[in-house]
Amino acid sequence: MAAGGDHGSPDSYRSPLASRYASPEMCFVFSDRYKFRTWRQLWLWLAEAEQTLGLPITDEQIQEMKSNLENIDFKMAAEEEKRLRHDVMAHVHTFGHCCPKAAGIIHLGATSCYVGDNTDLIILRNALDLLLPKLARVISRLADFAKERASLPTLGFTHFQPAQLTTVGKRCCLWIQDLCMDLQNLKRVRDDLRFRGVKGTTGTQASFLQLFEGDDHKVEQLDKMVTEKAGFKRAFIITGQTYTRKVDIEVLSVLASLGASVHKICTDIRLLANLKEMEEPFEKQQIGSSAMPYKRNPMRSERCCSLARHLMTLVMDPLQTASVQWFERTLDDSANRRICLAEAFLTADTILNTLQNISEGLVVYPKVIERRIRQELPFMATENIIMAMVKAGGSRQDCHEKIRVLSQQAASVVKQEGGDNDLIERIQVDAYFSPIHSQLDHLLDPSSFTGRASQQVQRFLEEEVYPLLKPYESVMKVKAELCL
């Protein structure tokens, strides 16, 4: 049975990233139509530049190519590739079939990587351009969430054990800070992308030097003109047959890092959902379990974690691919890159769409948070109580021993009897502590235990987050809708 299948058929496997999760716009960027249309555009740009620099290419040939950029006979191309065992030459023939007058000058002087690699770089750039505003929107939604809850005390956790208090907004800023680093890295790697350009079979530009009869300047002009037509500021000066596969490492490393950030955020949300302090959106008709109707599973956060793990592992592909590119190139890269580049971007696209949807509907339960604080705060307040007693004339050592005994009794009630923490009640009825009984409410005010959390939130948002989001103001209103 021949390899390949009808990918629109229910009898043929289709990647869930495309069929179930990723956005239509990201799927289109990695589609065959987008790819092969870009090949034709690159052939047109090459012909236009070659004509401008004096090669015998007519206006009629150029116009014929322009008129057929979208006229792609995919069936013919597939048949040609089956016959020739070469995808680029299959599309040269297919393009030439609908451009008979231009057929002889299509791909003039070029090698397969002229269309293959340059198209990949265009796709990487455009895919990054799709991700950047999506990530900015996630940051914006979380920034709104953090600002609104900047002063809401909550129990902090280290080692997932109760620690000092923080605020809900401050905790959210930990998430935002990681995503801001990801946004900066995505922008950097996007701006650092260079075009492969017009380089020939081993990167020496020998074929173009021959076409222009040894004119170095025209060869350099050709490279520059096509690079500018493709919208790049610069091209690699040095290439082998391909652009260095280190570029793929750079791009997928940034995406993998984004995956790590999203995994951490969504894990926190899942843990908070278990504590009943916070939940992701839950639709009115949504079913959490087929057997347990009360369940409210954090399905979206779980999906993000599941896909983020996949995204983090994909960076190993370009690392290994770059390491086995012998001399000017081997074909070890080809099949692998067809999979890992598309999957990385479709996965990143999915987790950003999902995280935006989550961040637009996060639900906080202040009463649950308050109750958990009441359970733990008495123990945390013991040092403040000791200091207040010393100020009232008591002995630190005597007070410490009193607190120690009462704390152990209260802990026994919590752990052995399943009761509430009654340390404060014990202190309130103990005559030894009568000098500070009137101060206990103040000493137990949760806001006095959150330090500068709310001020940190305000400063972080104003100095770091809002300036970073400013270039994306025009796209901030787009909502994230999930079908599944």
Rank of each mutant, 00 (worst) to 15 (best):
Q61N: 00
L142A: 07
E463H: 15
L53H: 01
I351M: 10
L331Q: 03
D420Y: 06
T201H: 07
L165S: 10
D248E: 14
A150S: 11
L443G: 03
V414I: 11
E302A: 01
R234P: 00
M299K: 03
F282D: 08
Q205K: 02
F36H: 15
L484C: 14
H400V: 10
C483F: 10
S112E: 05
A49N: 01
E473M: 09
T202H: 06
S412I: 04
E48F: 01
R194M: 04
I265G: 06
R137S: 11
L271T: 04
S261G: 06
C99I: 07
I72K: 03
K479E: 15
G419I: 07
T354P: 08
M476V: 13
I386S: 05
D6E: 13
F345H: 08
E328V: 01
L211T: 10
A136E: 15
D248R: 02
I436H: 03
L377W: 02
V251K: 02
V324M: 07
C27V: 14
G156E: 02
L307R: 00
D32N: 09
V475E: 14
P100F: 00
F28N: 09
T202P: 03
E50A: 08
G393Y: 04
G109F: 01
I403P: 03
K134N: 13
P133S: 10
A103Q: 05
F95W: 12
L314T: 14
V226E: 03
C180W: 06
G197P: 02
I385H: 01
A342V: 01
G419V: 07
T204K: 01
E343T: 09
N421G: 05
A453S: 14
S140I: 09
E80F: 07
R270P: 10
E25L: 12
Q455E: 14
T354Q: 14
D333A: 01
S290T: 07
S306G: 09
H310M: 13
T166Y: 00
F236I: 04
A127K: 00
Q428I: 12
R296C: 14
L211F: 08
E462D: 13
R190W: 13
V138R: 04
K233M: 13
C483A: 13
E283P: 01
E343H: 11
A3F: 07
A256M: 09
L84Q: 10
D223I: 00
L252E: 05
D223K: 03
R372M: 11
D216N: 12
L377P: 02
I287T: 11
G394T: 06
D430H: 15
F195W: 10
L444F: 11
Q221L: 13
S474Q: 14
L155P: 04
T450L: 07
F157S: 08
M292H: 03
V92M: 05
G240N: 15
R374I: 00
C172A: 09
L174R: 04
L355P: 03
P471V: 13
T330A: 10
F236Y: 10
V219C: 06
M225N: 03
R296F: 12
L121W: 02
Q221Y: 09
H159F: 02
M225W: 06
K276Y: 11
L174A: 08
V251Q: 01
S301N: 00
R188W: 06
K402T: 01
M65A: 13
G240D: 01
A49R: 02
S301H: 15
E220L: 09
R396W: 02
F282L: 05
A136W: 04
I427T: 10
R196F: 08
L311I: 06
D192W: 08
N384W: 06
